[in-house]
């Protein structure tokens, strides 16, 4: 495998996992926020937390059935496209992101909301303050979601199909190289994956250190 090809696969992986994480965030955050306002959300939070360990291959299978030609969303023609992988990975990381964001909003944000209100903030000002204070934890959650998305194999393989130059990601490429007995290439791709995940985590830590009180 050429260096350019490996880079191209890495860039596609970052694009797919990044888009999936952002997509999941767009619904996870409002959901977690709504849950944090309700008193009966703990049961839902427990369900979501138990879904964090949902097998990726099972998510892949469900999304496959959803987008397959005979499935309910088959008419969209998304199977074996990067979009199907993005949607599948977004669904995969939703319980993780919603569960953590709920805890963040329930504890950190609520504490700061209370402080702001006690100091005379309006509801809008208190919400802005609470979200500002929760920002580091929100970023950490997004990084976790991304790490889970970029490192998963089941969804990418089943609904992406590992098509060269189109849906091939680092994890599906590693699986392919191993099946061909090309362990050096597989290890090289694994190293790239590791570098991406660790770099992002370190970058987030540095950012949050700058942001620390």
């Amino acid at each position: 495998m050429s260096f350019i090809e490996a880079l191209s696969i890495a860039a596609r992986s970052v694009y797919i996992a990044g888009t999936a994480t952002l997509l999941a965030f767009t619904w996870s955050f409002p959901l977690a926020y709504t849950m944090s306002l309700g008193r009966r959300a703990r049961l839902l939070a427990t369900v979501l937390e138990s879904l964090v360990g949902f097998p990726t291959v099972l998510v892949g299978l469900l999304v496959y059935m959803l987008f397959s030609r005979s499935g309910p969303l088959g008419f969209l023609g998304l199977l074996y496209t990067p979009y199907a992988v993005i949607i599948g990975e977004a669904l995969l990381v939703t319980p993780l992101m919603t569960g953590i964001l709920y805890r963040v909003l329930e504890t950190t944000a609520r504490r700061y909301w209370e402080v702001a209100v006690s100091l005379g903030a309006s509801e809008g000002q208190a919400l802005a303050t609470a979200l500002r204070e929760a920002f580091p934890a929100v970023i950490a959650t997004v990084v976790m979601g991304f790490s889970r998305a970029i490192g998963e194999l089941g969804v990418a393989l089943l609904v992406g199909g590992n098509i060269k130059g189109y849906t091939r990601t680092l994890t599906t490429a590693i699986a392919l190289e191993v099946s061909k007995g090309e362990f050096e290439d597989a290890l090289a791709l694994g190293a790239i994956l590791l570098v991406i995940v660790v770099s992002l985590s370190v970058a987030a830590r540095l950012l949050l250190r700058e942001e620390r009180p």
């Binding site: 700061y112 402080v115 006690s118 500002r132 204070e133 620390r212 009180p213």
Partner: peptide, 12 residues
């Protein structure tokens, strides 16, 4: 104004 038992300071 209410002041919490455990001091909660804002970032900054």
């Amino acid at each position: 104004v209410y002041v919490h038992e455990t001091p909660i300071l804002l970032r900054g």
